[in-house]
Amino acid sequence: MTSLVLTITETLRYRGALGQWSWVLHRVSGLGVVLFLTLHVIDTSWSVFYPELYVKAIAVYQTPLFTIGEFVLVACVIYHAFNGLRIIILDFRPHLWRYQARAAWIVLGATLIVLIPVFVLMFGHVLNFYNDPDRQILSLADVLESQLPFAAGIAVALVAGILYSGLQGVIAPARAEPGRKYPVGSRWEKLWWSFMRLSGILIVPLVFGHLAMMHVLQGVFDISAQGAAVVGTDLINQSGTSVEFVANRWNLLVGGVAVWRLYDIALLALTVIHGFNGLRYVLTDYTSGSSLLRRGMVYTCIIGALVLLVIGALALLGTIDQTAIEMARRAAENLHP
């Protein structure tokens, strides 16, 4: 923790060049995206397991706090994607380092250029929603309360990781290997390094497509709009529930293939692994002073990623039937009596 504080204060004090700030933005944006990803995978799974909860989750997304968050999220994703590409290029063409600062400016510029129309479109959705006299908004207290389980879950993952690490320390303490003069390389870091770059490249089109559909062409407000077209399908959301929206998309078959389920499985696997490995980089960077914490952070990341992968996969393999939609409809009514 001290090393985190030190890094933050000294990064602010050190008059590093643009590269330093690109790194800061990359980390911060990555952390932001991972946090949202955690919420998003879990609550989307509720459309299969707990339709009432999913309805509430979408309602939460339609509050001002989350609307602001959505803008930030989109900015984070776009910056992280562009800067990630800059890093990948420099990693594989080190001799281009002289252009790194220029590339960092280009990343910033490109992010802004993309964000302007995106924000205009997104803002249109917001205006649309708030101009609607029938709009119904959850109170801030409701919103915060609904996040408590997530906070608790994250805390549990952290504690579990550290506990497991402690347990491992007791049962199988790291053995100093006598006679080994130099450490022997670990293949894993090398694989992770490649994975981050490869997955990064694959994620960019997937996530940009996802953002375009869910946040730009349509807004989060359209998910629960009765009679609205469901993006990526030729269906209409007849019940006006978010559960039906999801059901319509996941049940779409093109040539016998559930294309959106496949798309989301790819997105889920790549972003969760990429995101949680990135999180491991960040967390282990600042816990290197204690092997207990350092190992604990690795386990926390593994737990987090496994939970999301399992829950997400189960949901993507599950079915949403008419009963679920009906439950959602009733839940929506109860939400805003």
Binding site: Y14, G16, A17, G19, Q20, S22, W23, I87, L90, D91, W97, Q100, A101, E189, K190, W192, W193, Y281, D285
Partner: peptide, 8 residues
């Protein structure tokens, strides 16, 4: 691998 291409 701890190098994050920060360029400082």
């Amino acid at each position: 691998w701890r190098c994050r291409t920060i360029f400082n």
